[in-house]
Design a binder for these strands. Structure first.
Lengths: 289, 289
DNA sequence: AAGTTTATTTGTCTAGGACAAAATGTATTA
DNA sequence: TAATACATTTTGTCCTAGACAAATAAACTT
């Protein structure tokens, strides 16, 4: 039995949101403890996690909050079919399997092999990216334990890091700045981008996650970069993002271009004028800086 | 100018706490936007971050919330003197310097050299641990940019990971489970423990961060471990932790021992009877399983 | 089909009170 | 002196019900 704060932590759905959902859609209606405070059940948390996942994919609360668990699972099913349906890469299942038995060695061997076969670009676009999506999906459906998810994510990070650190650096090329804004702590997206761009011979400065805006502007000046790339995972809360991006663009000189990409910004309708939206990794890979 | 939600994210201090501080201690008193909502200044956020740091070290809100920034800085000064005062390891400064110029190569060389010189145990206890503390301290004082902190933390993680993966595995030994509870995402503590324990020939299963309790109990059964070690960083919110630990102990068979350690639990006065509190890495290193 | 206006949906914030868990202070016992 | 038990203060989290603007969808115009 979880108090509302724990539910917020475990689902990523804010306290106020949980309360207002209860008022508006009649779900989730938790029990109350002796103090009169909400206490949520395991099952409710499970459903909320699935809901979060679906909302992150672009669905709307009014349509899905309140549906039965079976109906939500159906939705998740059809959604997954759309996302990785056409990607019939048989290696993906093989890779995911490795986690179940903690086969670190086999995992690395497979990754190495796939990288050599596909080359960096295709490796990132057609293997790592869909793999990351599948991991999130399997977690939301309860098919993967949290530490299995962590294990896989960590191994991917280590592998990419190892590979990237061996790539040659081109000092004379234009520098590209990579970062995520505060609130976004997924670093894999940045690593994928770093791989793609450095393969093209670009000089990349990866600032990492949760970089405050003032430090972004500082770094832009300090390193004299002309392009900034911001990554947003599907879990990112886009509320107020538009305003923030406009402010960022205003603070930077016009000669600096701001690119944004990732599942998290796909669902945004209108992008501010000065911001260049990248709708896929592929597009970034082909980008002319 | 930051709304209260952004301040919560950037400082780790809850919304309700911020409001109740304003009521009780008269700080922080933010301005109001046209909607009548609180908007906090850069400076206020800076002070709040410093406050958080001091509270994490065991100080009490009633004594320090409301003090001037200069007074807080004094407190931080004396506190640091206590923490790393006696540790006159000259290498630490050398290591921290590497971040300022992004000297990855030199950093790794220094780490490698120190590891060989000190051996795993002393390396973890006398170099990595104080280094991690100093990084946090310098960040709180504004002497380190957020991405410099990230860079250093990431490099330490990569280095430890690389070293640990090369250590021999002793299958026949007792297994020890390593994890953090939900809400704690610092993984460096776990890595340090893993290094210490595996050096002693123990078989370690590192589940990673934010492992829900039910999965802890599951894993305990599945892997037939007799010891669980939980790590808590200074940023961990211990509210309600005691109750949680008692529940965990109740769910596990008596033959399983639960150990807890880290800055985050140092400030807890009374530990539940079944839980073994480890007051330092040194103590864990000497622990008889 | 693309842009503009209107309507609906949705998340975040407000106030001031309440209460139990944790920490501190004080008295009592071994 | 040190450990234990009890009383007091401190402190974080949760409560209600309403409000409002930003984001999105729907309707309308060009």
């Amino acid at each position: 039995m979880f108090p509302i704060g724990a539910v917020e932590r475990d689902t990523g759905i804010g306290r106020d949101t949980l309360r207002v959902w209860e008022r508006r859609y009649g779900f989730p209606v938790p029990e109350r403890n002796s103090k009169g405070e909400r206490v949520y059940s395991d099952g409710q948390v499970r459903i909320l996690q699935l809901l979060k996942r679906l909302l992150d994919q672009g669905m709307r609360p009014g349509k899905i909050v309140g549906l039965k668990e079976s109906e939500l699972n159906m939705l998740a099913q059809t959604l997954q079919a759309k996302q990785v349906g056409e990607n019939t890469n048989p290696r993906l299942d093989e890779l995911i399997e490795c986690v179940a038995y903690h086969k670190t060695h086999r995992l690395w061997a497979l990754l190495e092999q796939t990288l050599i076969q596909q080359g960096m670009k295709s490796f990132v676009v057609d293997t790592i990216a869909p793999l990351v999506y599948m991991i999130g999906d399997k977690w939301a459906k309860g098919e993967l334990k949290i530490f299995e998810e962590h294990f896989l994510t960590r191994q991917l990070t280590l592998f990419l890091d190892a590979v990237i650190s061996k790539m040659p650096v081109n000092i004379h090329s234009n520098s590209v700045l990579l970062a995520t804004l505060p609130g976004e702590h997924h670093s894999l997206g940045l690593l994928m981008l770093e791989g793609l761009l450095r393969e093209r011979g670009l000089s990349v400065i990866n600032l990492g996650t949760e970089v405050p805006m003032d430090q972004l502007t500082q770094a832009t000046e300090q390193y004299q970069v002309k392009s900034i790339l911001l990554s947003f995972s599907s879990a990112y809360n886009t509320n107020g993002l538009r305003t923030e991006l406009i402010e960022l663009a205003g603070r930077l000189p016009d000669s600096v271009s701001i690119y944004v990409g990732g599942e998290g910004v796909k669902r945004m309708r209108k992008m501010p004028a000065q911001i260049f939206f990248q709708k896929s990794l592929q597009e970034v890979a082909d980008l002319e800086f």
